[in-house]
């Protein structure tokens, strides 16, 4: 399964890119498992807080991903 990830704010600084395409092996994958995978790829993610949107809607961690989903990693911004 191929998914598209998009990174915002501090998350984009950690991944050093705005987006990427990920090839996921195996069967079904939940948002929670994707988070684990990402935090493995980018350990600094563990130190931050962020919410995840799938196809422009915020989702719970139990949600399962589908082929070609667009996954946004959204941290709260502090600045004002």
């Amino acid at each position: 399964m191929i998914i598209n990830t998009k990174y915002f704010g501090l998350i984009a600084d950690i991944t050093n890119k705005k987006e990427e395409k990920l090839q996921l092996d195996g069967g079904k994958m939940s948002v929670a498992s994707l988070k684990l995978l990402m935090e493995n790829n980018y350990p600094d993610l563990k130190k931050t807080t962020y919410s995840i949107a799938v196809n422009q809607t915020m989702v719970e961690e139990e949600t399962f991903l589908n082929e070609q989903d667009i996954i946004a990693f959204l941290p709260p911004f502090a600045g004002g």
């Binding site: 915020m58 709260p76 004002g80």
Partner: peptide, 20 residues
């Protein structure tokens, strides 16, 4: 609802630190 609080996370940087 949008950003549930996660305990023990470092302060999110503001403009003073990050520039704007």
């Amino acid at each position: 609802c949008l950003f549930p609080e996660k305990e023990g996370v470092q302060q999110t940087p503001n403009c003073e630190v990050m520039g704007v």
